[in-house]
Design a protein around this nucleic acid. Structure first.
Length: 783
RNA sequence: GGAUGGGUAGUCUAGCCUGGUUAGGAUACCUGUCUCACACACAGGUGGUCGAGAGUUCGAAUCUCUCCCCAUCCA
């Protein structure tokens, strides 16, 4: 009766051995077969260095559970692993690390520094992903800055260009003076920042009246082209189309009615400048005003600012306020908190200035995206609304050009004589800023001199074709048609309006098809107070040391048992430790059962207790299946833990110990069969969640083949009498009753409460007659 | 201001869609126990006006309405 398993607790150091075994046997390889393909459009993580985010690690653990669930339900799974390496974060990281300025050094040297930095960060990232037990395709992991990836980004852009879906426009756009580039609406965040609200006196032309105008942007006075008031504001009814005179600049501008003027803000009259905010842009457009460019691309005031030209925004503001005061144009100043648009990356206030940028058409596609999104299944359904709200709020096409370096180059050359933009043929990776064009004559004018475009794409241009890249679009027709559209896009809910939306847009434009059939949206990992983790709050928990201390399976099981589908989940180390206890319990149940022979064939007659637990087991399997069907691992994780610990180990195992130990007992085989049947099922049900410990127990106890090529159990495969579950409550209550009695009874010999093995005289109720023998032996019930 | 989700014992959470026994569980706390797998365990216990109010109903944590509070996203 020696257990096959010796060690008394689950040692997660074993995970490393198991990992290398899996790697050697290459158990997750993917090839085209006649089974249905199941492709996961894995989010490629950005290697931004430590600390990583525990919520992100949990996210990847769960994506792996999706992959394992699909594999164990008969699908041919392609689980790509990629690393996102384009964009601002690495540029900022590199500038800091090497104390350099991107625009003040050789472009190629800067790119080389970035690449080196990414390589180091990436290695660490891949290692942790592997250690977490991700069953992805690490052998062929991809990078979004590889020639192959960038060539696809460029090819798809050229395709859109040729179809007229790209245009160049000069229009007011969000501009980050610090990053020196255009940014999309989706990249803006808003913070309340302290600022001065200045109440300025505007003289009404041809009268002694004056209008008070409150503004947080007095430095933009020079670009003011109108003053607007609300048409319902009785204070200004008489002023429509009259002129007011700009203080300091002595220029006349008209007073107009516009519904966007808020009566309760300041004096109710608003000056409209080009451009203080998005509302100014709208008013300029609607009223047909002529814009005056007050700020240039470096964030300095222009000639239009007259005496205030050539200053930074803040300097200009200070000086304008001083002069306004000196000339008696200021009624008062207030210190207020103002909701200020900031660049998501650099946290610099953005400016709105007219810029030449390339736009990808998206407005025309919104009705189609609306319609097609109806065929996209959301897990959970409630997060569909985030996408719909975003689609409804999109007001402009997508500006895709960026004045940055570490990104995919926009593949355009300009003819020096006729200035026409010329695009190369799709297929390879182009770097116009350093390469000669692949043509020698301008198609328009025959010119022979060209200038390469030096801008790059918005990184979402790269990210938004991930489902095309991983299915080898344009590169392997056979594989692409087998794998596209893909099965599922797993992602976090905060990038629905960027990644999810842009991917739908681009894939629909390029293939006419929705790129996936399901979107699986995970909530945030939040801190112990329920607040979102962020580096600025300083409440980020790094997953590295946690995984190192507790092991991958504990971390994974914690993540599954804590995060209900789509809901935010709390990250607390105490609860991770709680998950570890279950790993230990599972291990010990296995250790105990490993001392009994495995009976795989079902005996013709099963004892009542055995039929009872099998009925409960069937219920468990059904519930777990329900969870797995919608990739909600919260359900199986908690259901299996509850069953294994509180029913199977606590009650059933104790009830059948007698029969299990006694080989002469008539119910011996029935007990051994049922014990192992239950435990095998528990292991299979947990395999997608905790792949290491289940593999170890499975291969030690039941098979020399991996558990991860098994199928998830089906409840109708278990031949059970569902009626038996009616005994569950009476059985657990009777057991409690006996335990209570023993505790209350003081032993005459020891003076302590009775030990659980001491005899006691309690009759088994008639209702539980079928279980009488097992219960009597379990509790040592004697007359 | 708008949208989404949530408010259940000290803390966390299930149940709510499909109203019905003493509102499950975890953790913490208290008490006891080494009982032939497990003290990372076992047994027992304290602790709840299910955010507030109203309505529907024989009956509401669950359905309806109003309000308050929290989180996240968007103006």
């Amino acid at each position: 009766m020696e257990p096959k398993i010796q060690s008394k607790s689950w040692n997660h150091e074993i995970e490393k051995e198991i990992l290398s075994r899996w790697e050697q046997d290459d158990i997750y390889r993917f090839a085209i077969t006649d089974k249905p393909a199941f492709v996961i459009d894995t989010p490629p993580p950005y290697p931004s260095g430590r600390p990583w985010h525990i919520g992100a690690a949990a996210h990847y653990a769960q994506i792996d559970m999706i992959a394992r669930t699909a594999r164990m339900t008969g699908r041919n799974v392609l689980f790509p692993i990629g690393i996102d390496r384009n964009g601002l974060p690495v540029e900022i990281y590199t500038e800091k690390k090497y104390k350099v300025r991107m625009r003040q050094m050789d472009r190629q040297k800067f790119l080389d520094l970035c690449r080196g930095a990414l390589d180091d960060l990436e290695a660490e990232m891949l290692q942790i992903m592997k250690n977490m037990g991700l069953s992805g395709n690490f052998k062929e992991y991809y990078r979004t800055d590889s020639d192959e990836y960038r060539a696809l980004t460029q090819s798809t852009f050229i395709e859109l260009w040729n179809r007229g879906l790209v245009y160049l426009a000069n229009r007011p756009n969000n501009y980050c003076p610090d990053c020196g580039t255009t940014i999309a609406d989706a990249e803006i965040i808003y913070n309340d920042l302290p600022t001065k609200l200045v109440y300025m006196k505007f003289k009404v032309s041809g009268s002694d009246d004056q209008i008070i105008i409150a503004s947080t942007r007095p430095e933009l006075l020079c670009s003011c082209q109108a003053v607007i008031v609300n048409p319902e504001d009785e204070r200004y009814l008489d002023y429509q189309d009259r002129k007011v005179i700009l203080p300091l600049f002595n220029r006349e501008v008209p007073v107009k009615f516009h519904h966007s003027a808020k009566m309760e803000f300041g004096s109710g009259a608003v000056m409209v400048c080009s451009y203080g905010d998005q509302n100014d842009v709208q008013v300029f457009r609607e009223l047909g005003l002529k814009e005056i460019v007050a700020l240039n691309e470096n964030g300095f005031t222009t000639e239009a600012a007259g005496p205030y030209a050539g200053l930074r925004v803040n300097q200009a503001r200070t000086k304008v306020i001083e002069d306004l005061k000196a000339a008696g144009f200021v009624e008062k100043e207030e210190n207020i908190m103002h909701r200020t648009p900031l660049c998501e990356r650099s946290k610099t206030p953005i400016e709105i200035i007219p810029l030449h940028d390339y736009y990808v058409k998206q407005l025309d596609f919104i009705p189609q995206l609306h319609e097609m999104s109806k065929n996209l299944k959301f897990h959970p359904e409630m997060h569909r609304q985030i996408l719909l709200n975003w689609l409804d709020s999109i007001a402009i096409d997508w500006p895709v050009s960026r004045r940055r370096f570490y990104g995919t180059e926009i593949p355009i050359w300009y003819c020096n004589s006729c200035k026409s933009p010329l695009l190369p043929n799709p297929g390879r990776y182009y770097r116009p800023w350093k390469e000669d064009p692949p043509f020698s004559n301008c198609q328009k004018c025959g010119g022979t001199e060209f200038t390469g475009e030096d801008r790059t794409f918005d990184t979402w241009m790269d990210s938004s074709i991930s489902p095309l890249f991983v299915t080898k679009f344009c590169r392997n027709e056979e594989l692409h048609s087998y794998t596209y559209p893909t099965a599922v896009r797993p992602q976090a809910k905060d990038i629905i309006r960027t990644w999810l939306h842009y991917t739908m847009l681009r894939c629909v434009q390029l293939t006419g098809k929705l790129p996936w059939s399901e979107a699986w949206i995970m909530g945030y990992g939040v801190d112990e107070k329920g607040e979102k983790m962020s580096k600025s709050k300083g409440n980020v928990i790094d997953p590295f040391p946690v995984i190192q201390q507790y092991g991958a399976d504990t971390f994974r099981f914690w993540s599954a048992s804590e995060a209900n589908l789509g809901y935010d989940f709390r990250c607390s180390e105490q609860r991770i430790a709680g998950a570890q206890k279950f790993m230990s319990k599972l291990w010990n149940v296995g250790r105990f059962l490993s001392s009994f022979d495995v009976v795989s064939d079902r005996p013709s007659e099963l004892e009542a207790s055995d039929r009872w637990i099998l009925a409960e087991l069937a219920k468990l399997v059904e519930e777990c299946r329900r969870g797995y069907d919608e990739y909600n691992f919260f359900v199986p994780a908690n259901a299996v833990r509850d069953f294994a610990w509180n029913l199977f180990a606590a009650h059933y195992v104790e009830m059948v110990k007698g029969r299990a130990y006694n080989q002469a007992s008539p119910g011996h085989a029935s007990a051994l069969y049922t014990l192992h049947k239950c435990f095998k099922t528990i292991l299979l049900l947990l395999a997608p969640i905790a792949p290491f410990i289940t593999e170890e127990l499975w291969t030690k106890m039941y098979s020399d083949k991996t558990i991860h090529h098994q199928d998830l159990p089906h409840f109708n495969q278990l031949d059970v009498d569902g009626e038996m579950t009616r005994f569950t409550t009476p059985i657990t209550e009777f057991n409690s009753l006996v335990w209570n009695k023993k505790k209350e009874t003081v032993s005459k010999e020891t003076g302590k409460p009775l030990s659980l093995k001491d005899p006691i005289d309690i009759p088994v109720p008639d209702q539980l007659a079928p279980f009488r023998k097992d219960l009597e032996e379990m509790h040592n019930l004697q007359k």
